Simulated scan of single mutants.
Amino acid sequence: MSTLPSRSLKGDLRDLALVAGGAIPGALLRWQLDADVVANMLGCLLLGVVLAQASQRKRLMLWAGIGFCGSLTTFCTWMLDLTRALQAGKTGESALLLLASLAGGVALVALGHTIGMLLSPRLRDTPSR
């Protein structure tokens, strides 16, 4: 017997629309930035801010966290950059990109979370919608 909550098609479509609504502007911003590392780091910072507020706000997480930040930051582009650097024999550059992206990404999510908690402490006490 499954213990998963029941889901409705209407609810799933609403959730999908929220993700898509955030993904389009996130992808457009990434395209305009024309710098993959900048886009990834900005997305990590914004994701931290969203995470600080989204624990009780499912719609915010779907739209901003998964949709916007998910399309602003892309794992595949990061891997493509690493692969190209390795194929060009730039082992040191590859290692630096890998370490800087991982450490920088985690640090920026943490910083964004701290900023989000400081900016909106009242949201933690607001009932979910």
Rank of each mutant, 00 (worst) to 15 (best):
T3P: 04
T3A: 10
P5N: 08
P5T: 03
P5G: 04
P5Q: 08
S6R: 15
R7S: 13
K10F: 12
G11V: 14
L13P: 09
D15K: 13
D15V: 11
V19E: 02
V19G: 06
A20H: 04
A20E: 01
G22I: 08
G22L: 13
A23V: 12
A23N: 01
A27R: 04
R30F: 03
R30L: 03
R30V: 00
L33M: 15
L33C: 01
L33Y: 02
L33W: 05
L33E: 03
L33S: 00
L33P: 02
A35V: 00
A35S: 12
A35F: 05
V37H: 07
V37P: 08
A39M: 14
N40W: 02
M41P: 07
C44A: 08
C44D: 01
C44G: 00
L45Q: 04
L46D: 00
L46I: 12
L47V: 03
L47M: 13
G48Y: 00
G48C: 07
V49G: 10
V49I: 15
V50R: 02
V50Y: 03
L51F: 05
L51H: 01
Q53M: 12
Q53E: 09
Q53F: 06
S55R: 11
S55C: 04
Q56R: 15
Q56E: 13
Q56T: 12
R57I: 02
R57E: 13
R57Q: 15
R59V: 00
L60M: 14
M61C: 06
M61T: 05
L62A: 15
W63I: 14
W63P: 06
I66Y: 03
I66Q: 06
G67Q: 08
C69S: 10
C69M: 08
G70E: 04
S71A: 15
S71Y: 00
S71N: 15
S71H: 10
T73N: 13
T74Q: 01
T74W: 04
F75E: 02
F75M: 08
C76F: 06
T77I: 02
W78Y: 15
W78T: 05
L80I: 14
D81I: 06
T83P: 02
T83N: 12
T83Q: 14
R84S: 06
R84Q: 13
A85R: 10
Q87K: 12
G89R: 08
G89D: 01
K90E: 14
K90M: 14
K90V: 00
T91P: 01
G92D: 06
G92Y: 03
E93L: 13
A95N: 08
A95D: 09
L96R: 12
L96E: 10
L96P: 05
L97C: 04
L98N: 09
L99C: 13
A100N: 07
A100K: 08
A103N: 10
G104A: 06
G105V: 01
V106W: 07
A107V: 09
A107W: 03
A107Y: 05
L108W: 10
V109H: 11
A110C: 09
A110E: 04
A110M: 10
L111H: 14
L111E: 09
T114Q: 05
T114S: 09
T114F: 11
G116N: 05
G116K: 02
G116I: 03
G116T: 01
L119P: 07
R124E: 03
R124A: 05
D125H: 10
D125Q: 15
T126G: 02
T126W: 14
P127W: 11
P127Y: 11
P127Q: 06
P127C: 11
R129D: 11
